[in-house]
């Protein structure tokens, strides 16, 4: 066995041990979903500096990380929350099942954004350029100008006061509506825009359905 594999396996063993310790008492689907959440959290931690431009952008790593998130989102996530699975150590709140549709919408929203994130990985930190030519006669209303990066956006008074929609080319932000109904092609967005939407979806879900943590 190559030394690097030995090292990697040793790291894997210690990671498994760390997970087991961290989830002391969790078993079955509870443990499985905690492991999924941990995998997504670790992926987000690695990608976040890249999304801020603090470390060099790596499209392959972004695509791979997006795949990790997508793999734990949507129906996969929902299948790990059978009704009333609150036994042992869990951060799940019973509202998951009383408000199941909302929970399911968030899980699916996460999958939609993560899938788009994987496809948009080559875009980098800028929206995909508009294709040249061949656009005559098309309805451009859903393909408006590329949105401003989230951190630099200027908001209207209506947006700031909470009664106005976000800028028209971004009809959804912070989990505000069903992304499947979007007029904009998510895969044309900058990768960091999608990453922001993913983190907002996570926060939205945690605030409603996760107990005991801020």
């Amino acid at each position: 066995m190559k030394p690097q594999w030995t090292g990697a396996l040793a790291l894997a063993a210690s990671a498994v041990a760390a997970v087991a310790l961290a989830h002391n008492g969790a078993m079955g689907v509870v443990l499985e979903r905690m492991n999924g959440m941990t995998a997504m959290r670790d992926t987000v931690a690695v990608l976040a500096p890249m999304m801020q431009g603090a470390v060099p952008y790596d499209a392959f790593a972004v695509s791979e990380g997006a795949g990790v998130i997508a793999g734990h989102a949507g129906e996969t996530m929902l299948s790990l929350f059978p009704e009333g699975s609150l036994e042992g150590v869990t951060h799940a709140r019973p509202e998951i099942w009383s408000d199941w549709q909302d929970f399911a919408d968030l899980a699916k929203e996460l999958k939609t954004y993560a899938d788009a994130f994987a496809e948009a990985a080559p875009n980098g930190l800028e929206p995909a350029p508009q294709p040249r030519g061949g656009m005559a006669g098309m309805d451009h209303s859903a393909m408006a100008m590329a949105p401003e990066p989230e951190a630099n956006r200027r908001f209207t008074v209506a947006e700031l006061m909470g009664y106005g929609d976000k800028t028209p080319e971004i009809p959804v932000a912070r989990g505000a509506s069903n992304p499947a109904m979007l007029a904009v092609d998510l895969t044309t967005l900058a990768a960091n825009d999608l990453f922001t939407r993913i983190s907002a979806t996570c926060s939205s879900c945690h605030s409603r359905f996760r107990a005991g943590r801020t």
Partner: peptide, 22 residues
Amino acid sequence: LQSGLLPNGDAFGGSMAEVVAQ
């Protein structure tokens, strides 16, 4: 404060998620 993400990759929950989002 912009994204709701902690340094370890977790996302805020509870009231702080609302503080960031709103």
